[in-house]
Amino acid sequence: MSTREAILDAVRGALGHKTVDGAALRREADALLADLPAIRPDLLADGLVEAFIARLVTPKVAATAERIADARELPAAVARYVEARGLPAAIALQPAAVLQALDWSGFDVHDRVAPDETLAVGFARWGIAETGSLVFHSDAETPILANFLPLHHLVMVRASTVLAYLDDYAAATAGQRPPRNVNIITGASGTTDIEGSLVLGAHGPRYLHVVIVGEATDQSAR
């Protein structure tokens, strides 16, 4: 008997034999996620984008955030960011069509992130108001390392894709083939490994700045 069979047999032996009805089990599992408001936290504000931003700037998440009306204003926002912090005007630009379509004149732009990259500009597919998180899917436009190597990570997200809860993201993608990586990123990299005190910039970015574009399609948080 293979190890696989032996383990499965041991499990079945311990549980007592029964025939499993997959559909019934699925219903049982779904029922465990009923009445979600009873088991998740309240949002910090009524509007989704407002709640998202309020969460982003809490000390726990420690990101910074700003809003712009149109994606074409992103390069100017990046320019302000760079200037305020005295950084070189060189950016690793995530190879996402929405970003590459913008006018980056005045910047030294490259699309491969160096191991010691100072600033990378990225695009997140979703924001999550509950946690102040950004969600990325690995694909041709989204190298995963670009989210982890730079010291400063500046991320654009559309207000219309800010969801209330992590569950809403799960529901939005249920049944689709998952990407290799789903990165849910909440704030900058941090560690509490030395005496429990929080220090930012452990291995990943030390600074996270989120730029929210446009208006939410649905202004009310559910």
């Binding site: 694909d139 041709a140 998952p178 990586n181 990165n183 990123i185 941090g190």
Partner: peptide, 17 residues
């Protein structure tokens, strides 16, 4: 800060993995 779901190896078109 980082919650990641890893599903299989690099897919066609992926930049890394």
């Amino acid at each position: 800060q980082y919650t990641t779901f890893h599903c299989g190896p690099k897919q066609p078109g992926d930049r890394d993995g």
